[in-house]
Design a binder for these strands. Structure first.
Lengths: 208, 208, 208, 208
DNA sequence: GATGAATGAGTTTTCATTCAT
DNA sequence: TATGAATGAAAACTCATTCAT
């Protein structure tokens, strides 16, 4: 979830260039969310953006680069939303719950981008055929695992393997999200509270 | 997960025809697992199977049909493995844990097919653009939710919305699985026991 | 219209072989009439005949040969119907009108075969890309032209180029036929009498 | 024969785009005239035009659209040639003869396009399997029938069913044309005068 | 900066034909 | 005699990318 876009590269772009890139990225997100990763083509993105196909490869060099931007941009913004909220918590349980809860909050107000990112993350592959974004996911797991570890030391949480459970926690959020992805009418926030309750019961040390 | 392939259709096929279909389906599973859904083409499947492209459409009629077979066949076999093990349990907690645990067990010995199925389920879309297999997923959630409901009535489990939690439980299994998908060296079975422990803590009624 | 199928070749075929060939030719006629020349494939013919694709090329050697049989068979049968009726007439006008009239009569009771033949005649081409059946058409024109010539000598018909007019007469029949081809409900026989009247007025010598 | 291409759509095309479309349409007409409808493929059209296959679908979207343009363009141009000549005539017989005669005149100077149009009209089918262009043919018949009707009221023409005879007249022209189609050396204009004479005798009221 | 045009490799699918059984 | 199986060429069409203007 945490991801640093190397700002050195970005600074070289003119203002108008940046605007175009964002416009194209937005159109791409829309297209991917609607059509799915496999059926999204430059032609459809251009159509959504109301521009010609040529513009896209003029600004981006490759289709890959656009989709990468869509995903990483979403990561960054989401993390900007989450980070201060997590830091404001003091207990480990609080931090974990806010990590998951604020993420879902952010997603709930950015449905299209979320759908696009999900499609891209589960499908985008590098030249060697392996999934991209494995690193980003690992980083996020590390972050949660670190919190869990501190919670165990502080006696807040029961004993378990922190990395495994961090992974499980983050993916159980995907469960709620994937229901929401297919049924937009579903109230994500109320599902979220069921989830947070579930997680709390799963990890806290029971009062003896 | 539970799915009945209408056997009437299958029975009309000759033995050799069936063998070819399975061979092609296997090659397709391999291709999807390796290349991902978006980049799997009939040409690559044919290449994997060591046959000409024409053979595939001779036996299958459409790419869709192959991928459908790959997925549903895997569902069926997995459910055949899971069902007796679930029925052998008596408590709700036992059934839920065996549901998840036996599923992971089956997956762990059928890695390629699992990867293929996962790709297909998250990407395959019907003519209207909506994800196929939504129904299969809903059925599985219903099955787990029913167990949870009975567990609550029996006083085994604490109060929560059974469907929401069923969804969360099944998706948290996906969490473990997706780590395994990217890192085959990971010991799925030991991760599984962490997960089952996690689930048990999350749903059982605490002794007062 | 007059066409001799070399009987030498046919006599070598067994009875059952002949029956198969006719069955296939009938199915082919049906398929061509329904789908049009361009979209008729061996697969569709086999389907109509309720046999496997292989049987067709076993009996026929090539798709071309089937379609050729469909057309020539129809020619022959139609000519068997027309010939005695034409010979029974004594005047040139009578013979011409019966030529056209009896042809339309035969067609009216063999709609499917007629449609197939029409498709095949206007589309079937030899290896050099030229239309096949040019010869058959020329023969028929010669036959009518010969009658017209005799009619002129006998003072029945006015002066005109017999071959040109023979051609025009035969094609004006196509006019009526093509309406009937697209609107099967149309009464071909009443259209036929309008046509015969039209032809008679066009060629007879007016009483001075 | 009369057909209005909605000019609104065309106006949006750039000059160069239009030129390309016409070039492709010309190549398509050539290909259809030479190979016949069934054997005309995008590959052959591209070959004739000296361009790559991709260019065609870039400019046209579908094979259908090209063939439609070839046919309708020819209709439009032919009608532009015929209309003023028909309106210049005063008698019904004159109008009918000019209708047919000017059509044949136009065709005689546009042989390739005529052949292509003929192939397309007799073979092109819509999604439902029925022939396209049935409407265009009906319109032309209506036009001639209307003239005949007026000729009957004016006492110029004898009694007959105007629509049936209009159909016969137009198709008898096809007779002459189809000879010409297969034998380009044939003098179409002299055949035309035989035909016009034939038609005049067939429909005029004989002086009593 | 921007774009329309062009390309050629790639997609799925259909098809006539061959062949072993 | 019959057929299911296999093939490879060809079909229409899509697409990411390049390039001249």
């Amino acid at each position: 979830m945490r991801h640093d876009n190397s700002p050195a590269v970005q600074r070289e772009r003119s203002f108008i260039e940046q605007a175009r890139r964002l416009q194209i990225a937005d159109a791409a997100a829309e297209a991917v969310a609607e059509l799915g990763y496999a059926k999204t083509s430059l032609a459809r993105i251009a159509e959504k953006a109301g521009i010609s196909k040529g513009v896209i490869t003029y600004h981006f060099g490759s289709k890959d680069e656009i989709l990468r931007l869509v995903a990483t941009q979403f990561f960054d913004r989401c993390w900007q939303y989450m980070e201060p909220r997590i830091l404001a918590e003091e207990t480990a349980i609080g931090q974990v719950k806010v990590w998951v809860g604020s993420q879902l909050e952010y997603f709930s107000t950015h449905r299209v981008e979320f759908l696009a990112m999900a499609e891209i993350m589960t499908n985008h592959r590098g030249g060697d055929g392996t999934l991209a974004y494995a690193e980003e996911i690992a980083e996020e797991i590390d972050g949660v695992a670190e919190i869990l570890r501190r919670g165990q030391l502080a006696g807040e949480l029961r004993q378990f393997d922190p990395r495994s459970v961090a992974n499980i926690i983050l993916r159980s959020a995907d469960g709620v999200l994937s229901s929401w992805a297919t049924s937009p009418s579903l109230d994500l926030m109320s599902q979220s509270s069921v989830l947070l309750d579930f997680i709390e019961h799963a990890i806290r040390k029971e009062p003896s």
